[in-house]
Design a protein around this nucleic acid. Structure first.
Lengths: 182, 182
DNA sequence: TGCGGAATAGACCGATTGGTCTAGGGCGTG
DNA sequence: CACGCCCTAGACCAATCGGTCTATTCCGCA
């Protein structure tokens, strides 16, 4: 944290992801990101020629990868779909408590961003990736194709909605009871 | 739309609500609101002495009232809780198609706004108001208190999450299938 | 008809925005 | 040593930000 063995580009992505998640795309100035990452403006435009929008996409992709890892970690050892889903919800609740009451990082950085169709499309792509990952595990755990698809989408909806209510209440409790509604 | 018999204050609120909903609090400049409402800056600061933040709260409150009306309209003639919930989801799907793929107006204007605790608290208050309204109808329709509370929260979660998925997919279909998961 | 507050109108302000540009530092390779 | 390249560094820019301020118009009431 104090010292920075991490390369500048990674620091920029990490800072951007954190800041966008908490204050939204337009709520964060480049100056904020640069200060947090302790990098000069020149470096930013060297690594991200298109500036803020490039940075946002990189940050969202990074956040998405973290989520995919979380899904995999939850379902990998699970005996049933419900067990995996429950683990995921508990892991998310823990994450919620650790990071504070932020938005879904994808929504905050891509949906709130400039009108560019690319960003919206990228956000959609990321979300479908999450659902596909869950779908994969659902199939592996023996659910029929139709059933698996419905379950995967349902879990996504529950998590997104539950996260929002948790944020409003500043409490991760909702997330932990989510799985009972599957 | 073209002509404006509506008083300036209402026009400001309406424009602000629409713009905040589509681009988020920080994504909208006062100039945008003023242009859309065809009002000079002087009027804005006359009606909303605290400027943008006052405007945001008024816009969110207005949007919330619309939602409360929608809930009431859905449940008023309903014979069962499920019937009311289904009607609400269908009404929201229709609204989604009409307004385009915007965020939840409350989240866009209050959560993305400045750090001020007031705004977050107000958002939370509005959400709980929605849940309370549904809870009211649930009780009236014969559900036990515990059961009603769980159902009301569950419906909120489904709608919030479903709306987000609908937005990513640019399709209101998800919203219409939501009720089958109650 | 004239008074007085409500509302409109927009010029103006300093601060901050995202983005561009030039200069220089660090280092592996010839 | 010196060349060239990757990256750092930050001064600088026009545009826009939210907000303040004064002047003017509108309109109900006496």
């Amino acid at each position: 944290m104090t010292d920075t063995p991490r390369p500048t580009k990674d620091r920029l992505i990490h800072s951007a992801a954190t800041l966008f998640r908490t204050r939204g795309y337009h709520g964060v100035g480049l100056a904020d990101v640069l200060a947090d990452a302790q990098a000069p403006k020149g470096s930013l435009y060297h690594h991200f020629p298109n500036g803020k929008s490039d940075l946002a996409i990189a940050a969202a992709t990074w956040a998405s990868d973290e989520m995919l890892r979380l899904i995999a970690a939850s379902f990998d050892g699970a005996k049933t779909f419900e067990a995996g889903a429950t683990t995921l919800c508990y892991k998310l609740a823990k994450l919620f408590d650790k990071t504070g009451w932020d938005t879904c990082p994808i929504a905050a950085t891509l949906f709130e961003g400039p009108d560019s169709t690319d960003m919206r499309a990228h956000a959609s792509h990321i979300y479908e990736g999450w659902i596909a990952e869950v779908l994969d595990h659902a199939g592996r755990l023996g659910l029929s194709e139709d059933h698996a698809k419905a379950k995967a989408e349902h879990l996504f909806v529950l998590i997104q909605g539950g996260w929002m209510l948790a944020r409003a209440r500043r409490s991760s409790d909702v997330l932990r009871t989510l799985t009972s509604q599957l």
